[in-house]
């Protein structure tokens, strides 16, 4: 069975890295996790972001959660905040869209307009 001792090993391995990470992280990916978002499939979208950010080494991004964004019919909704730039709102997000958002937007700096709220309206 996984033991708590393994966590102590993770602790030792990560100690040095934590200090470095705290300096960047200037992009915030926010997933709406209210009732309407969860019902529409926000949980797998959230987990896909956590995994893709890791897999593609997007160390400049942190994934967080929020309550109702107020547009239930467009859920799951994901907002991307970046210092000095306008907020980007992705709507009806599916896990399959996540690798591309991380690659082209989070790492590449180019929002994917066809997934955004402007395209849906």
């Amino acid at each position: 069975m996984k033991s708590l001792e393994e966590l102590a090993a993770i602790r030792n391995k990560m100690k040095d890295r934590v200090a470095i990470r705290e300096n960047n992280g200037d992009i915030r990916i926010v997933v709406g996790m209210a009732t309407c978002g969860i019902a529409a499939g926000a949980r797998p979208v959230l987990n896909a972001f956590v995994e893709e950010v890791r897999k593609q080494h997007a160390d400049n991004a942190t994934v967080t959660q929020t309550g109702c964004i107020g547009m239930c019919r467009l859920e799951p909704i994901v907002e991307v905040f970046e210092g000095g730039k306008e907020r980007v709102t992705y709507v009806k997000v599916k896990p399959a869209m996540v690798p591309r958002i991380v690659k082209e937007h989070i790492l590449g700096g180019k929002p994917i307009t066809e997934y955004t709220i402007g395209a849906a309206e």
Partner: peptide, 12 residues
């Protein structure tokens, strides 16, 4: 087991 410096939402 983790101490204070490692947040619980670290990927590992």
């Amino acid at each position: 087991a983790l101490g204070d410096e490692i947040p619980l939402n670290s990927f590992e």
